[in-house]
Amino acid sequence: MKKLSEDEIHEKLKGLDGWTYAKDAIHTSFQFENFKEAFTVMTRIAFEAEAQQHHPNWGNVYNQLEISLSTHDADGVTEKDFKLAKTIEDIIEATG
């Protein structure tokens, strides 16, 4: 998979609300009502990530979820990252 240029990344980020680019990855964070809601969303993301064979770097503390996406094989951001980011956005949107 081809590493995207910074211009390509910034252009694609326009279609994702709340995502930023830094340190060869795209990043976002979410806050939920409580730990159970955060963990439920993480579980849904985990199943989708496994299906796409592309896994996020993430952290969770209580109701906070921080996500970073990059393609390690390409040493940067690729289309795979944006595909997973879109999936994550769809999951978040569906949970309301």
Rank of each mutant, 00 (worst) to 15 (best):
T20S: 14
I26Q: 07
A51G: 08
L65A: 08
Q53R: 15
T20D: 11
Y21H: 11
E6R: 09
L84G: 01
H10Q: 15
A38T: 13
A46S: 15
D17H: 10
H72S: 12
G96V: 10
M42F: 08
L13M: 06
P56E: 00
K2N: 11
H10P: 00
T43D: 08
D75K: 13
E48Y: 03
D75P: 00
T78S: 13
Q52V: 01
E89R: 06
I92Q: 06
G59W: 14
F39T: 04
E8S: 09
G96M: 10
D17C: 01
Q31Y: 05
K83Q: 14
F39A: 13
H72I: 12
F30M: 03
E93M: 08
E89V: 13
I92P: 03
A94F: 07
P56N: 00
E48P: 01
W58Y: 10
W19S: 05
L65G: 07
E48S: 12
N60S: 11
G18E: 03
K36H: 12
F35T: 02
D73L: 11
E89C: 13
L69K: 11
E11P: 00
K3G: 02
R44G: 00
K83F: 04
D75R: 09
I9R: 02
K14L: 13
N63R: 15
A46E: 08
D81W: 02
I92K: 04
R44E: 14
V61Q: 15
L16R: 03
K36P: 02
A25T: 11
D7M: 05
Y62H: 15
F82N: 01
S70D: 15
E6S: 10
A51Q: 13
W58K: 10
E37N: 12
K2E: 12
T78I: 05
E8I: 05
F47H: 12
K2V: 02
I26R: 08
H10Y: 12
L65N: 06
A22W: 11
A22M: 12
D81M: 04
W58C: 09
A25M: 12
A38R: 05
E8R: 03
T28M: 02
T95W: 07
A85M: 07
D24C: 04
F30D: 00
T95M: 14
F30Y: 15
N34D: 15
E48C: 05
F47W: 10
A38D: 00
S5L: 07
F47Y: 15
E66D: 15
Q64D: 12
S68P: 04
E11L: 13
R44N: 07
N34M: 09
Q64M: 13
G59K: 09
T43P: 02
D75M: 10
T43C: 07
N60W: 08
F82L: 06
L65T: 06
E6Y: 01
E8H: 04
F30G: 00
Q31D: 11
K83H: 10
G76P: 07
T40Q: 11
F47D: 01
E37F: 00
V41F: 03
Q53M: 08
K2C: 00
D90R: 14
D75Y: 08
T20G: 04
T71Q: 11
A49E: 06
A51E: 15
